[in-house]
Computed example of a mutant assay.
Amino acid sequence: MTLCYIGLGSNLANPLAQIKQATLALQALPSAADISVSSLYGSKPMGPQDQPDYVNAVVQLNWSASALELLDALQQIEQDHGRERKAERWGARTLDLDIILFGQQQIQNERLTVPHYGMKTREFVLYPLAELAPELTLPCGMELSQLLNQVPKNGLTLLTATAKYNQPILSHQ
């Protein structure tokens, strides 16, 4: 099993419901176990500002298959939730699921870059991640706490309390 962190984001079609439904879909994956979810946060959109604010969270899970199989599963969940891939990189979307970390692996290929290329600068990833793994050290050797000291909250707002979501919600045997 590989300890993984998945970033979740949505700003269309009832974003709170999209994030909650995505966590349920992650629970149902046969290769996933011991799933925990951070609090939900509101954040300003990256890129074009003429779109709704986002709801974000991070999921921690243990994964028993490959990183590319996880990517395939995440893309299927996105598609099932009405995600349309467009040329506009940071446009509005019903659901965005990104592999932030896949254990301590560093992966670089045509389909996947892990750690996620933007994780070190995105408050909507770092702060929810810190709820789940405050003592985390990245594959590059940098501590998450160092990044939190460097990246301001930039308007990030807490939407739900950790106590509701930071509990393991499913464990496959």
Rank of each mutant, 00 (worst) to 15 (best):
M1A: 03
C4P: 05
Y5H: 14
I6F: 00
G7P: 06
G9A: 03
S10K: 09
N14E: 08
Q18P: 07
I19N: 05
I19H: 05
L24F: 05
A25R: 02
Q27T: 04
Q27P: 00
A28S: 03
S31D: 03
A32E: 11
A32S: 12
D34M: 08
S36A: 14
S39Q: 13
K44C: 02
G47I: 05
D50G: 11
D50I: 02
Q51M: 00
P52A: 00
Y54P: 05
V55W: 03
L61A: 06
L61R: 12
D72T: 12
D72G: 05
D72E: 00
A73N: 15
E78I: 07
D80E: 07
H81I: 14
G82N: 15
R85L: 09
K86W: 01
E88K: 00
R89V: 08
R89K: 15
W90Q: 14
G91F: 01
G91E: 01
G91D: 01
D98Q: 07
I100H: 02
Q105L: 11
Q106V: 12
E110V: 13
R111S: 03
L112I: 02
H116E: 09
M119G: 05
T121G: 10
V125E: 15
E131P: 14
L136I: 13
T137D: 04
G141N: 10
G141S: 11
M142V: 07
S145T: 14
Q150I: 09
G155K: 11
T162N: 10
Y165V: 04
N166S: 09
P168I: 10
L170I: 04
S171E: 15
H172C: 02
